[in-house]
């Protein structure tokens, strides 16, 4: 009798056999998929990339590279993945991720168009930060802009600090070139991955920077974003113009390459 009760409890609902479950599953799957579709997070391939700049945690969605994170240690890795999971459905995918390591290596070796992946700004939460990143994309290789100048371009002339924050929160360094943002006085500024990496990247883009440099070299030329004219830093045209409107080019060649013409007063060639 007692045994029987335990057996009976185990048989509650056993009138629903496996065939019945099959039928119900088939019907329910579509419903579930349909309901899930509305709340699905974007899918992203995830992997660790070894690059000349160190190890990077990389995520790539269908729209482009969404994360390119300088890794510090295992804790950093765990925390970053935990945060990433809230926004994306992660899938480990070496083949997709490995393309990034080659791109970065070739880029550092001087190949200007090596970074082929598009950028996906999904992880950038604030509209202002997105705007800043879009403006930053206009700063070409071989040029840098000041935090203040970038703020002005993004519609916040007093927002140098906010730009600094945006750069600090840049989820896709290298691809979104936040290493091209420096202090207004020509100081190198900061970098999420550490100053040596910033110097490394800028050097590969044509700036003559020693490994211990703290400022841009003196031979940069100043290009005005509005007039598309570039000058020596001591030109009197430079003194009259708003500082925030300038890009700083590694040399005259980079400035010409960016579509600028030399100044007729200081003739910086």
């Amino acid at each position: 009798m007692l045994m029987k009760i335990e057996k009976l409890i185990g048989s509650i609902g056993s009138e629903f056999d496996e065939h019945e479950i099959d039928v119900l599953l088939r019907r329910s799957r579509n419903r579930v998929d349909h309901a899930l579709k509305r709340i699905r997070r974007p899918e992203a391939a995830l992997g660790i990339v070894k690059s000349p700049l160190g190890e990077l945690l990389v995520a790539i969605t269908g729209r482009g590279i969404v994360l390119n994170h300088y890794l510090y240690d295992d804790d950093d890795l765990a925390v970053t993945i935990a945060k990433l999971r809230l926004e994306l459905d992660l899938v480990e995918d070496r083949r997709t991720i490995d393309t990034v390591s080659g791109e970065i290596r070739r880029y550092l070796a001087g190949e200007a168009k090596a970074l082929r992946h598009k950028v996906d700004l999904t992880l950038v939460a604030s509209a202002f930060q997105k705007k800043v990143m879009h403006e930053l994309a206009e700063v070409p290789r071989g040029a840098v802009v000041s935090y203040q100048g970038l703020g002005a371009a993004a519609g916040a002339p007093k927002g140098a600090r906010a730009v600094g924050n945006a750069m600090h929160n840049n989820p896709v360094p290298i691809y979104v070139p936040c290493h091209r943002v420096i202090a207004s006085d020509g100081g190198i500024g900061g970098y999420g991955g550490g100053i040596p990496r910033k110097l490394n990247l800028l050097r590969s883009e044509g700036f003559a920077l020693a490994p211990t440099a703290v400022r841009l070299p003196d031979n940069v030329v100043w290009g005005h974003r509005g007039t598309k004219v570039y000058c020596r830093p001591n030109c009197r045209a430079v003194a009259r113009a708003d500082r925030a409107s300038f890009l700083f080019f590694a040399d005259a060649k980079s400035a010409r390459h960016a579509g600028m013409r030399p100044c007729k007063i200081c003739q910086p060639n």
Partner: peptide, 25 residues
């Protein structure tokens, strides 16, 4: 720096496939 192997969570679809039958039962 050597990092331990990347530990990516199982894709949700895989979890669903693995457990949908017993959950339904």
């Amino acid at each position: 720096m050597t990092l331990s192997k990347l530990h990516v969570p199982l894709p949700f679809n895989e979890i669903m496939q693995r457990h949908e039958r017993e959950i339904m039962r």
